[in-house]
Amino acid sequence: MQIDYLATVLLSSLSSASILLIATIGLAVVFGLMGVINLAHGEFLMIGAYTALTATQRGIPYVLSIPIAIAVTMAIGAAIEILIIRRLYGRLLDTMLATWGLSIAFYQLAVLIFGTVSPGIGMPHYSLKIGNYSLAGYPLLMIAVAALMGLFVHVLMTRTVYGMKARAAIQVPEMAQAIGIESSRVNTLTFSIGCGLAGFAGAVLLPIVPATPSMGFAFVIKAFLTVVVAGPVTLTGSVLAAIGLGGGASITASFLTSVAGDAFFFLVTALLLWLYPMGISAKWRRKM
């Protein structure tokens, strides 16, 4: 096997794992800190993509459309937490049903507003050449984006006052309330941040995955399974699960077919959940 081909496959697989991680982190934050399974996560990703697309169509530079997408999805997320999610804490099934209903509503709304097909913005034309092979540069850039995104969430949740309040508000809400932490506001901000991360993912992946009403479906199932496999140490566990599952599926697809790659993802997921029903991080000492 040629070294340049192997290097190309490994870089491409790391890029695929990074894209999965970018799409997953927002869900991991909401599930890990709040215990809420947001089945509308894919639709928040879609909202972020459409917001960025609409902004660029209005003449706003693509780079500036990304923070706009974050702001829009955070605002929608905050409103949904206040109006719906806040009333369902501790009722996992009801929360899943509510967010599933939201996902259907958002999907239909996107179809009505934008139709089923939307123009893309095109991928930047630069590439990395390795021997006789070349890789598109923008998907490779997602490796750095995923690393910075993970670092941002880690610092936010472990090195800031908000992070300490967020963990306290979920883990010991009565004590948090007793020492003056307004749990409701902290929870609203946490859910909003998770939605904002999904919006960021949709916007930053727009050159790779064109905005369509169903684009969230391509990510939400794998993102959800990645978080479940990760277990209670959501951030570190999600990073390892995304690299293992997403990267492994990409390598399998490179040597076989895309169907074989998907089969690898779901079979390994089933095996890991059989071996570690509470997730791969269930017995870790770390909490983030």
Rank of each mutant, 00 (worst) to 15 (best):
A241Q: 14
Y138E: 10
G35L: 06
G122Y: 09
L197R: 00
E174V: 08
C195I: 01
I68L: 15
L93A: 12
G59L: 07
E43I: 03
V36F: 03
T212Q: 11
F219T: 05
Y5L: 15
I70A: 02
D262G: 11
R91Q: 15
V220I: 13
A263D: 05
V30G: 00
G120C: 10
L20H: 02
I243V: 15
A55H: 10
L235A: 07
A176W: 03
V227E: 05
A168D: 05
G163K: 03
T73I: 04
F191V: 01
Y126V: 13
I22T: 07
S281C: 09
F200V: 03
G163S: 02
V63H: 11
R286T: 15
G48W: 04
F114P: 04
A230E: 06
A146H: 03
I85W: 08
L245Y: 09
L135K: 13
A52K: 07
G59V: 07
R91E: 12
H154T: 05
V30R: 00
V204I: 13
A270G: 09
S18F: 10
V153A: 00
R286K: 12
L64G: 10
I66F: 09
S13P: 07
F44L: 06
S183T: 12
G261K: 12
P67K: 11
L83G: 14
M96W: 09
S16A: 15
A17E: 11
A253T: 08
P124L: 10
G244E: 11
V268H: 03
S238C: 09
L206E: 08
A136W: 14
F264S: 07
